[in-house]
């Protein structure tokens, strides 16, 4: 759960000026992997602006998400370079493996899948990131092994 103190610490790092709304929400996103509703309420109060304005921003900007994410975040790059080199096949592979659509989280809360645009290493396309780690020049048949390795890691921790 998100604690009010943590949210307050993030928000109060910024002056009460609307131009810092996006930055504060991005910090929450970084910290919690999503922007919690309590966070928006407290931010609206801090900045003295209607919460609807913050909702508008949170839904407009792709960097922000209003729903909690899974423990491991799989980002499949579908920028042009990756697309041309078969990114959609990776999407199919991940969908087959996890039985969820991009944008969703698995029932066990382990994985979230997102399709993103260009992560800056187009020369190594197609690229998939798991928790920020790059898997380059990936072929669809390698996908199950990568996902299994994260499952295995979590299994070890639970035992």
């Amino acid at each position: 759960m998100v604690s009010a103190e943590e949210v307050a610490r993030i928000i109060e790092a910024y002056p009460a000026d609307r131009r810092f709304a996006l930055a504060a929400m991005q910090d929450m996103q970084n910290e919690f992997n999503y922007v919690p509703e309590e966070g928006l309420e407290m931010l609206a109060e801090h900045l003295g602006c209607p919460i609807a304005q913050l909702f508008a921003m949170a839904t407009f900007y792709k960097a922000l998400s209003l729903t909690p994410k899974g423990k491991h975040i799989i980002k499949i790059c579908n920028g042009t370079a990756c697309h041309i080199r078969g990114a959609m096949n990776l999407v199919t592979g991940v969908k087959r493996e996890l039985n969820i659509e991009p944008g969703e989280t698995t029932e066990d809360g382990l994985f979230s899948v997102e399709i993103v645009n260009c992560v800056g290493s187009c020369a190594l396309a197609p690229v998939m990131l798991v928790d920020g780690i790059y898997h380059n020049k990936l072929r669809v048949e390698q996908v199950p092994g990568i996902i299994d390795s994260y499952r295995a890691k979590d299994g070890e921790q639970h035992d």
């Binding site: 579908n78 920028g79 042009t80 260009c118 800056g120 187009c122």
Partner: peptide
């Protein structure tokens, strides 16, 4: 913003 370019980033 061009999804497939990294000149400015680099």
């Amino acid at each position: 913003g061009d999804p497939g370019a990294f000149m400015d980033g680099s």
